[in-house]
Amino acid sequence: MKLVESFLPGAPARIEAELKRADAGDTGFAFALALVSELASKMDAELKAIRADVAERQKSLADHYTGPWRIDQEYQRNALVTHRNSLWLSLTQTDTEPGKGPTWKMVSKGDKPA
């Protein structure tokens, strides 16, 4: 059960409960069934997180563009704005002006000063 606990925290208690409910002659099957159920549950949760991450990464740059930078707006991580004829990417959630700190990265420098 220590091996099961290392991969599936809390699972041994649920598996032992399943074994107590099983008939005396069918504990091997009950253990396998409980273990598979725990693994499926854990995999389902991890797959949901992976799918959400992939969906976020598949967004195009246009999905992140929020328009010209505005002093009265807070920007989420990965927001793209234009400011002083340049394109900026927010590295964290921020309300600071692009170029005034470490929360923005210039993606494309404009050809004319603003």
Results as ranks from 00 to 15, higher is better:
W88S: 00
P98V: 01
R51Y: 12
D95T: 02
T96D: 00
R70G: 02
R70N: 11
G67T: 01
V81H: 03
S37T: 15
E5P: 07
P12K: 07
Y65G: 06
A24S: 12
T94W: 06
D95Q: 07
D53R: 12
E5M: 08
D26W: 11
K48L: 15
G25R: 15
D23H: 15
Y75A: 00
D63V: 01
Q73I: 01
L8T: 12
D95C: 02
L3F: 07
A62Q: 14
P113W: 09
D44Y: 11
K42R: 13
P102K: 06
A22N: 06
P9F: 09
A34M: 09
D44Q: 15
D53Q: 14
I71W: 12
V36H: 11
D111K: 13
S37L: 10
A62D: 15
G10T: 10
K100P: 01
H83S: 01
E16G: 07
W104F: 01
E46S: 10
R70H: 09
A17F: 09
E74Q: 08
R77E: 09
G101V: 01
A24H: 09
K100M: 06
E56Q: 13
A79V: 00
T92E: 04
D26P: 04
S41I: 11
Q93T: 10
F29D: 13
N78S: 08
R57E: 10
T27C: 08
K2S: 12
